[in-house]
Each structure stands twice: as structure tokens, then as C-alpha cells.
Amino acid sequence: MSDSLKHLDFSKLKTYSIKDRISKVDIKDFSVPWKKGESFSAFLDTLPSILAGNDLRYVINAICLASKNDRPVCFAMGGHVIKTGMSPIIIDMMKKKVLTMLSMNGSGIIHDLETAMVGRTSEDVAQSIGNGSFGMAKETSYFINQAIKNAQNQSIGLGKAVGDLILKENFKFKALSLTAMGAALDIPVTVHVAIGTDIIHMHPDFDAAACGKASLYDFKLFALKIANLEKGVFINAGSAVIMPEVFLKAVTLVRNLGYTLDDFTTVNLDFIRHYRPMTNIVNRPTLGKGKGLSIVGHHEILIPLIFAGVMESL
């Protein structure tokens, strides 16, 4: 032990009463034990008014307020959201006119199409990468590349082209397709592709120019909707790079063009906190009047919780 520590006089320590101290946690904010047979609204009321308990209620209230006031509620996502079985809930929110735009990266249309076509998706990559069979399902490539051709011929976006094709082919599980329901309900579904990231890009019939043009169309549609996001809500679920980057570019674009985009809510939902969603969704765009929140958890738990809360409130 050093000489300086030997000579510290602990008896001279300055103290104060805990009754005079500001504390960040109060028992009035504690959770309430669950009572058997209570409603879901009662369950939400039992959550502590602390950290994510507060954030969850804030997100639910923000979505409800935007919906009641006819303001946008935009839902962006990675393909993992489909793979965790969330399509029925998202479609229900589209039908109830809560969600006003759906956006996804390139993997989203792959899982969406396969779900509609055969009721299954998400191959075992670890098992198939060794023998080179990963991503080689012929039907997936054929139909999405056909949708890309249709987008080129009809001068439409990629999301609508995939949805229209699923409806035209009358796939058995089309009612579980996000793009098909978007097309049927006339709700924009935008798809934002990074060339080389998706299995269809490996196939010989892939037309990169046509795909890029269709995805650019969707970016312009996306930006048009973001231009009206004031007092609305933007949710990003599970996209770690593509959708956060697309959103940030759309925000600066519409502000540059003179649109008012100051007071809105952004939400990031994922099971870890990634750099880009935190900076490009939660923090940077909402500086000023806006509010950004990040709730950490699994999609298959958070998304049902949030939208069940929305339905209870609406």
C-alpha cells in the first residue's frame, strides 16, 4: 500500500441525507405483479415506468397518435422479420391502415416470394454452402427475375412488381405475402437492393440494370413518403445497414428540397444495438424536436407486443 493511501482520513468524508438526494428510480415506477385473467392493456400497465418499459409504451402511443391523426407509420425491415413469422401481424396492420408504407432490403422479396409460393423459406446455409448448392433454388430465381423484367417493361418499382406477380400466379399462400398484400391494398412496398447481396444475383438471367432501375424507382417512392413523415413514425426492424442508409439519404434529400421534417418519431428494433441503426435511425435524423428510440429484443416478441398494444389503444 502506498504512503498516500495510508494517510487518507476517512473520518473527514462529507456526507448528506439520502432524503435530499435526487434519485433516478422511484417505487412509484416499479412493476406490478400480474393478476390471472387480466386484459392485455392491464399487462402493459404492469410494466415498470423505467427504461424499455417506458419506451415500449411511448412507441405504442406514438404509432396510435400518428394513425389517429392520419400521419404516416412506415415500417422498414430486414428479411429476418419474415423468417421470424411476423408477416401475418404486419399484414394485419396494413389492412387496418396503421402501416402506410413497407420497405425492405433485397432479401425481403426472396423470403416473401418463397413464403407465398411454397409456404416455406430460409434454407440451411451452413449445410448447403459446402457443396455450392446455397441459393440455387430455380423457382426463386426464376420468379423474382421475371418480376424484375416486369418492372422494367411496366416502369414500376420492384416491390410492386413482385407483389403483382405473386397475385397473378395465384400462389397458394399469397395471403401471407407482404408485397402481394401491398399491391392488393395499394400500400407502397419499396425494395432497396445492394447488388451482390442476394441469391438471385448469382443466376444467369439476373438483369442488374433492370433491377437497379426498379430499386431506384422504389427509392424515389420511399423519399416521397418520407417527405410527409412530419408527426409520423418510422420503424426499422432488423436491417443493420441497408435501410438505415436509405432512410438517412431520404431524410437529407427531402430537407434539401424544402420539406419540413423536424418533429417525428423513429424506432429501431433488433436483438443487439448496431452502429448504423443507432446513428442513422435513432440519433441523427431526430436531432431537435424529434425523438428516437431503440428497443432491444427479438422480433418475434417485440413486434407482436407493440402491435397488440396498438390494437388495444386504437
Rank of each mutant, 00 (worst) to 15 (best):
T46H: 10
D112I: 07
L248N: 12
A227F: 05
K6F: 03
F222T: 03
A209P: 00
K19M: 10
I200C: 03
L176C: 08
H192T: 03
T190F: 02
T197W: 02
I272P: 00
T100K: 07
M136D: 01
L269P: 00
L8N: 06
G132I: 07
I22Q: 11
Y217W: 15
C211R: 00
T279I: 12
W34M: 12
I50V: 11
R255E: 09
H7E: 10
D55Y: 15
L261W: 12
N105L: 04
Y16C: 10
A208T: 12
I166V: 14
L65G: 01
K149D: 11
G53N: 07
L44E: 05
L99F: 07
G53W: 03
E245Y: 03
A42M: 05
K68D: 12
I129Q: 08
L178R: 04
E114C: 05
I235E: 03
K96H: 12
M117G: 00
L221D: 09
A151C: 11
M104I: 09
F75S: 01
K28A: 12
R21D: 04
K6L: 08
C64Y: 08
V73T: 06
M1W: 06
V98C: 06
C211A: 15
G157L: 04
N105Y: 04
V241K: 03
K14H: 10
M117R: 13
C64A: 15
K97V: 03
F206D: 03
L47P: 02
F30R: 15
M136L: 14
A66D: 01
K19V: 08
K12M: 09
L229G: 04
L287I: 12
K149N: 11
P188F: 08
I281T: 06
V32Q: 14
I199V: 15
V191R: 00
D207N: 15
P48C: 06
L158N: 01
R120P: 00
N145R: 09
T190Q: 07
T15K: 14
Y275C: 04
L44K: 08
F307C: 03
Y217S: 05
L167C: 10
D55T: 04
L224F: 05
C211N: 08
S215T: 12
I144L: 13
A175K: 13
K96P: 01
G288C: 09
S107W: 02
C64D: 11
R273E: 13
T100E: 02
A52Q: 15
A210R: 03
D270K: 05
A161E: 02
S122L: 11
A183L: 01
A126P: 05
L165M: 12
A209K: 13
L56R: 09
